[in-house]
Amino acid sequence: MSLIRTLLARRETLLLCAMLALLIGVTARFPEFATPASLANVFHDTSILIILALGQMAVILTKSIDLSVAANLAFTGMTVAMLNHAFPDLSILVLMGLALTMGLALGAINGLMVWRLNMPPIVVTLGTLTIYRGLAFVESGGAWVNAHEMSPAFLELPRAVVAGLPVLSWLAILAIGLSVLLFDRTPIGRAFFATGGNAVAAVYTGIDVGRTRFYAFCLSGMLAGLSGYLWVSRYAVAYVDVAGGFELNVIAACVIGGVSIAGGIGSVAGTVLGALFLGLIMNALPVIGVSPFWQMAISGAVIIAAVTINARAERSVGRNILRRKEIVL
């Protein structure tokens, strides 16, 4: 039982209630939206967002930010798609391993610049965002890799159904499970919280703050690399602008889920719920016939509402301190 999660319990409950309300509202008019198959589809649709958000959560917990995840995804996705096109017989597991390694390397570059050169994370990843996407352009020459150029195995793995759910969904569930272990049950997970919670105190406690940030960027990069393969395979196309701007959805999922941009506060459950909430909206709005133009504005409004609620929640914690202090004194 994570204590940090207990602290945030109310925020997650709130999110869950909002999701239920949304679900009930939509279901009232479109009962088929709430069928298990449809909900499983929402989850399937949100899987990549969940995987990316869990990596981003580690970065934000350490009071950093990784803007390069979508570019990393595009570059890695393009690379594996081109490899698959050139060597159709290469095993998918090898390609996935390659995607993980390449994403990890790209994340490590971010992390090294933040750690060793002491550069602000937002600047570093703003730079690598452009570089990684630029490299995707360089290697492909701007050409697309289309479905017919990919091997059937490459395309089928994520959507192969195992025990009632597609592999992509299972991968997201696996990522959630491993994240719970990582964040709540390992010293490095604790170090993420400590680094963002109070970097100076963390240093005095013997935590290497720079190295901790480096690990967070490595994790985020690795998951972005994996998502590169998953994305390209799921949408059966690779081009330079794949997942353009998706890093903002990833950050939004974290923020909606209660991860504090100021670092040190957040939970796996919250982040997953934040991603699912976004996914639910994205899937529900077309069902109830809201135009795509409005969809963007509405998701933006949701993000702002979530941040407002978070800010208020943190303030009310502050008031509690004084009240308790008075009792103690």
Binding site: F193, A194, A201, Y204, G264
Partner: peptide
């Protein structure tokens, strides 16, 4: 500032 991580 240096000692405790107050949110923990």
């Amino acid at each position: 500032r240096h000692g405790a991580i107050t949110a923990m």
